[in-house]
Structure formats: C-alpha cells, structure tokens
Design a protein around this nucleic acid. Sequence first.
DNA 1: ATGTGC
Length: 501
Amino acid sequence: MRTRQDHRLERLDDHWLRLPNRWDVPVEICAGPGVPLEPAAVDEALSLLETADTLARLAEATGFDGPEPRITRVVLTPDLHKGAGIPIGTVLETENALLPQAVGNDVNCGMRLEVTSLRADRVRSRLDRLEKRLRHLFFEGGRRVALTPAQREALLREGLPGLLLTGDTPWRGLQPTDADDAVDRAHLPWFPARTAEAFADWIGSAGGASYDSIIGGIGGGNHFVELQYVSEVHDPAAAHAWGLTPGTVVLMAHSGSLSLGHQANGTALDLLRAGWPAGLPRPRNGILPFLPGERTEAARRRYLDAFANAANFALGNRFFLALTMRAGLAAEYGELTSRPLYDAPHNLFWPDGDRTVHRKGATPAGGHAETAGGPHALWGEPVIVPGSMGASSFVLRGHGNPRSLASACHGAGRRVPRGATARGGDAELDAFLREFRIVTPLDHRDPLVARRSDVMAAWRRDLKQEAPWAYKDIGPVVSSLAAGGVATPVAELRPLLTVKG
DNA sequence: ATGTGC
C-alpha cells in the first residue's frame, strides 16, 4: 500500500524522507511508502525547529559566551504522531542545550523484556486460572509491595542496585537474580541522583515498611504487561543467543515513572520560567531550553537530580511489574526462571560532553560501537517494538545507524488521535475482548469499585483509545526499520495474555 | 501519560 505523501516531505530513497526547513537542520524520517504520517505531527516537528531561534535569542539576552547552542539533527521514527508540543517519535540532537520537553513528561517510560523457561502450550492450557490470579495481583489489592522509607530513597538515588543493597527486599519469596542485576546496572550509566528532595513526600510517607500505593502499578494509556510466545524466528543465530526459540514464553512490560516523571518535568518548567530573562518573549512553541553555564547551574542540577530520581523509579517499577507477573506464573505453573533480556528507555536523554541526544517516544538501536564491552556487543542492542493490543510484537537488533541517531521506533504508532476514539466502536471493542485475553482494571462506573482504595479502576473510554484500530499496522513500520538500515528483525512474538493498565 | 479530565 502506498499512502499519499505530505507535500512538505521530500523522499530520499525507498525508506527515508527529509523535512526541508529554513534553519537547515537535517531532519530525516525513516518510513517506507506504506507508513502513514500524520500531517499534524509534521506541523509539530516544524514548530519544534523554531527552538533554533529560541536558543540564539536566549544566548543573546543572557550574554551567554560559551560555545553556540544549536540543534544539530532531528530524526523522526516511523511511528511518529502528534504529542504535546513535540511529536512522539522524535530524536533530537543538540549541542550546548538541554530540552526537558524533548523527553516528555513520562521520564524513562520504557520496555522490559524477559525470557521465561515456560512453553506456550503449557501456559495456554491454564489461561483461565492464570487470568484470575493476575487480576487479583495487579488490580485487586494483591500487589502490596512493601518498602521502607530508606528503601524508597535508595531506589530513587541509586536505582534498583541501590535498593537491593538496602536491607531485605524479598517480595513474596522472590528475589532478583544476577541477570536482573546486570540489566539494571547497565541501564543508567549516565548520572546518579544526588538528592531526592522533590519526592520527599513519597519517601517519607510511612514510618516503617508499608505497602506502596504507587510502585508496582502499570499506569494507563498504552502501558501494559503481556505474556507472549515466540511465533517466528527471523534471525536464527541472534534468536538462539537471546533464548528466543519458537514456543518460548516471554514477558513484556511497558510502563513509565507514573507521577514522578511528571513532577520532575514540572519542576524543570517552573525553574525555566522563573529564570527566563525579563523582556525576552516566551517562545511561541512553548519549548524552554537550559543553556550550560553558571547562570543556570543550580536549576539544571535540581532538574537533573529529579530526572534521575524519576528514571531510577521507572526502571525499578518495571522490575516490580515483571516480579508480579513472575509471581502469578509461579503460582500457576510452579517453579520457573525469567531472565531479563533488556530494559529499553523510550523517554530519556544522554548528555555526552557538549552533545545531548534526547529521545521522546523512541528507543535506542545501538550497534557494535554503542554496545562495545557489554553483553550485546556481538548482536547489537535488542530493539523491542510492540504492536497494538492483540497484534504481534517484534524483537530486532540495532545497527547503530548514525543517520537514525542509533534510534528506532517504540511501537506501531497511533493512527487515530486519542480524542477521536471516544464515539462509537463499542461493538468492535466487545468483539475484540471476546477474541483476545485482556485483563483490565475493574469498571470505574461500578459504585462499589470506585469507593475501594485497594482496587484499580479504569474507564472503558481509556481502553477504546488503545483499541487495535487506533494504531498503525506494525508490518510496514518494522519493514521500514529493516530496509532503512536501523534494526533488523530477530523474532516475532504473539500475545497470549495482556494485562492492560 | 497522569490515581482518575477542561
């Protein structure tokens, strides 16, 4: 299928497009002819580029005498769609500038993939019983992760490795493994958090160990925890190395930093507004950057600490989500192993000297250079691309393509805006729910449910926003990544059971 | 996307 091309885009070859702009910033999109691109998202990308002017004006107004702050490259992924100010599916490379909004509110939203010792036929044989267990564990008060204030603080400051060193943290008799430790240590190499002051309320909310109302929650929107099985192998050598043999059951968790990332981003915007030079108009696109230097040092440091705290929390939360799923599986099928293959961040930046790569709704796809010395040096970075509910997901291996800023898409991409899914579609949703095994929170319209604080409730309207027809077909999206030299498929995964936040 | 709408 060929979709009509946006007149502002120029096709470079079969799988790359260019967005010409008056700032001469290289803006490239990896998308084949079968991938629809939302015009509103292209509008938003052009509006983002006005930040090039903001950087120049801010530097002048503040007498900034360091090296020129600039946008050096933008990559838009094939799952591009309109976000709040900056498109979801944007990779932004800057020099001498940091843009909190280019990672978005949900700091370190990401994807964890674990390879279990279970086989699909065994899991399939008792899905009814497993479903009941998971509904209880995730939504009906069965989660109950107990952490002391010291443990909460350690999680924020030093991530999961820090938490594991702070007293006993067994949960339902399950302990993290060496593989967890290796994945979690590899995840956050950039800057440890110094202070958790922004989250003092959450840390200090109990005297002793108490059950946590936040950690272990899935979140909403497109977040989920899913059991899948390997249905097809596309790259036998890499699949074998990663344990992705046909019929193997895997666990996928997509979740973010819940309320913590929002608080971190809010802190950044408050600080940026407070420090904005008097007399300089605020930018039309609403995007406020940090420039380096002493003038902004204190504010930047406070933001980076809150950012790292939220990022650490998100990684830890995905670990707890996996642990919850492991607990359900162990209760139903007996002892098992579940080894994390990867935990990939979607919303994050990496300052590296003067250069910063920001990703908002995009996933790293490093090759040999980016993974050198690590466990994935041989095959490249695992790239996890989930399809919409009920559809296949893919695991690919990254090629570190500099054209893509070593980045790939983080999903199939929304086709219908959230707001446009409210009307109709109820019969289709019912049919979908009969066909696929989707474990959802309890119905929020039920007055008995709404009054109970120990259960999760959700609206049907939210579920409709995540219906399969609201998303693009994942096939052309994955083909674009492969043909565009970004990442190549290793294995295809089909859903067995989805726990939907 | 957010412990639950402007």
